[in-house]
């Protein structure tokens, strides 16, 4: 009886203490050592070689917006038929498929927006919202987002800001709610879609002096980041599924060697922009490039169909 009484009295006190400390943490300036994400895998490539003393390690993949920007600045055009059809949206019922396709649709809408495809951008934001709703992401994409998009459809700066904000909010929501693997899967889904769009747009054009081909080969460097990101959640079953697909891609990229010269930083005194001067070359053959195209297509189909 005495114990029950103690428990009865102490529980509200403990709850009070919990709430007190949780609310104190919003000040965030004394001895608060909580972390936001948990990427701390052991590294193997040169850039990753040093022993790290860092409390937190981040691996940054090209976002949907950056992937779309790379495609655009390679001098390509907009091809609507390459996008993941809107009608596929009802096929995605598991958390994994919704997270992957949210990344895919966000890359598609970024690509559409950079080519000023107003109506397509809105439609793809609506399906992205459906995926976010399905994942329980309540505040990242709401009706206000769609309304703001419609109101500013001719203002590209605002549209790009809305897309960047949407991506930031969806991934932050998943991470903040202890769903880091789904945030990683969504990021990988978006990256694969960018690679799919790029490889399809490259078509059968010559490989030499071809910007889009160069950017596709450069993604070998992003692949390292993808693998590090997955390593930090390797016990998760959904990540294991994605990992099998990514390993197939790695096998093809491993057939390509990129040689790169040392970096010489040169500052433009007028603009204060530093150019990291260097050259690079690869030994990609048509055969390997076609294999890469097919592998990317297979993975994208596995992700979306």
């Amino acid at each position: 009886m005495l114990f029950k009484l103690k428990l009865f009295v102490s529980t509200p006190i403990i709850i009070g203490v919990v709430i007190f400390f949780a609310s104190c943490s919003s000040g965030g300036n004394k001895n608060n050592t909580k972390e936001i994400s948990v990427d701390s895998a052991e590294l193997e490539r040169d850039i990753f070689a040093d022993i790290s003393h860092a409390k937190q390690i981040f691996y940054s993949l090209p976002s949907p917006l950056e992937s779309a920007m790379m495609i655009k600045s390679s001098g390509t055009h907009f091809t609507e038929k390459l996008l993941n059809p809107l009608s596929n949206v009802n096929k995605y019922t598991t958390n994994r498929s919704m997270a992957v396709s949210m990344g895919v649709y966000l890359t598609d809408l970024s690509y559409a927006s950079l080519f000023d495809q107003a109506q397509t951008t809105i439609k793809y934001m609506e399906v992205s919202k459906k995926m976010a709703d399905g994942l329980g992401i309540t505040d990242a994409i709401d009706k206000t987002t769609i309304d703001r998009l419609e109101e500013n459809i001719n203002n590209r700066d605002i549209i790009l800001d809305i897309i960047s904000e949407t991506f930031m909010s969806t991934s932050a929501f998943l991470r903040d709610n202890d769903r880091q693997p789904l945030a990683t899967i969504s990021l990988i889904g978006g990256w694969i879609e960018g690679l799919y769009l790029a490889t399809q747009l490259a078509g059968d054009a010559p490989l030499k002096d071809n910007k889009i081909v160069d950017r596709i080969i450069d993604q070998k460097l992003s692949l390292d980041m993808v693998i590090k990101l997955m390593d930090s959640n390797k016990d998760n079953a959904d990540i294991q599924y994605i990992s099998v697909q990514i390993n197939e891609l790695k096998k093809v990229y491993d057939k390509i060697t990129i040689k790169s010269s040392k970096i010489q930083p040169v500052v433009d005194e007028k603009t204060n922009v530093t150019t990291l001067k260097s050259t690079s070359s690869s030994d990609v053959t048509s055969e390997v490039f076609n294999e890469l195209k097919e592998t990317v297509k297979t993975i994208r189909n596995n992700f979306t169909l």
């Binding site: 950017r215 450069d218 460097l221 990129i258 790169s260 010269s261 970096i263 930083p265 603009t271 204060n272 922009v273 530093t274 150019t275 990291l276 001067k277 260097s278 050259t279 690079s280």
Partner: peptide, 8 residues
């Protein structure tokens, strides 16, 4: 602010 001449 920076730019790269080859992927890094």
């Amino acid at each position: 602010d920076f730019k790269v001449e080859s992927a890094k």
